[in-house]
Design a protein around this nucleic acid. Structure first.
Lengths: 200, 200
DNA sequence: CATTTAAGATGACATTTGTCATAAGAAGAA
DNA sequence: TTCTTCTTATGACAAATGTCATCTTAAATG
């Protein structure tokens, strides 16, 4: 019996998938979590064989969770299940070492099969992702990402500089460089583009 | 046997819900649609008893579809199934005369029950919606909304003014007023807040 | 070891953004 | 028929944003 944990904040989908998987004779959903924090506790308590993780969840994202698990030496298989085909997410997941990455836009029937394959040591990725993976590298340095994230959260340049203990001019320079790199007209377009590509 | 159509663009959820509902002895999912346009054709061909409609779908939204159906005198029951607790959507759905409005954040078990009740002439609404429906009115005028939408798409004030055949100063005034109304620090925060509340 | 890149800074400058006072015309409500 | 709200506009001003050139130091790469 494959023991599965599902972490997904949309209750309707989580419930439906659990019921569905429980109909499979060799699969049992032993736990459901609403967010990454809840999931981490349940994983410690129950050590499931496979974790199905959504990415965008409150408190702690599925990617954060996966990275933590592997760092801590977890042997649990991890399948990311998300709406987002963003290259950034996919790359980060691969880098973390996940065993599968499926899109919510795929057929639900394949899910049980994916779980079995992953348990069998194989990897499972949505084909459209592998195909689209023409390395859209993040052109931003880590500092630039930090700055852009703060600006995207609504802070002014001056506030960002106070936050990061930088001079106001430096932040302005960073923003200028970011806008230039992303070929944007202004910070708003830069934010939109960076989010689309999964760069922040 | 209650004959059900599901229109939902996220294949995983659509598939899972269909399978789930088909396990119910008195319910049969007779059709699945990827978008509003596909749904409308299937409804004409098959006249289902109940339609489960997502709101945000490509080509034609679930709300557009529901309104069209009732205008055309359809007797099919309509249940909106969506992620969004936005007051605007809810109000529009009520106005159109839908028979149910459920959130994807609710339990999947209740779905079958909701379908039965609606067939029985009752209405079904997610309690949090009715409760939260303390009229979070959109403080923006329609012109202000237009301006903010364009700014959110990355245009500068000047570009917006060219777009709407207004003077640059007028657009600046609008933005100033918008920022003031939404109690934001700058346009970026205004955009975030307005999107959160579903005001643009 | 030389070179490149990232991080950080300054200064000068032009442009954009945000605020405020003020005003006129149109439409709708009391 | 007033009164209010919405749309549109100007002008003036302060603050924020974006661009560019230039410079230092540290770390990484060849």
């Amino acid at each position: 019996m494959i023991r599965v944990l599902i972490a997904e904040d949309q209750q309707m989908l989580r419930g439906a998938l659990s019921t569905l998987l429980n109909y499979e004779v060799d699969i049992e959903v032993i736990a459901q979590a609403n967010n990454g924090k809840e999931a981490i506790e349940l994983i410690h308590q129950l050590s499931p064989d496979v974790c199905l993780l959504d990415i965008e969840m409150p408190i702690k994202s599925g990617l954060d969770l996966a990275e933590e698990m592997f760092e801590a030496g977890s042997v649990c298989k991890v399948i990311i299940l998300t709406t987002f085909a963003r290259t950034g997410y996919f790359e980060r997941a691969i880098g973390a070492g996940v065993h599968g990455y499926l899109l919510k836009d795929g057929p639900s029937e394949e899910l049980a099969e994916a779980i079995r394959r992953v348990m069998n040591g194989q990897k499972m990725f949505s084909p459209e992702l592998v195909f689209n993976h023409i390395k859209q590298d993040n052109p931003l340095t880590s500092r630039e990402k930090e700055v852009l994230k703060l600006v995207a959260s609504g802070l002014t340049s001056k506030e960002v500089s106070a936050h990061l203990y930088l001079s106001a001019g430096t932040v302005r320079n960073y923003m200028s460089e970011i806008i230039n790199k992303l070929e944007a007209k202004n910070r708003i377009e830069a934010i939109t583009k960076a989010k689309e590509k999964g760069w922040i």
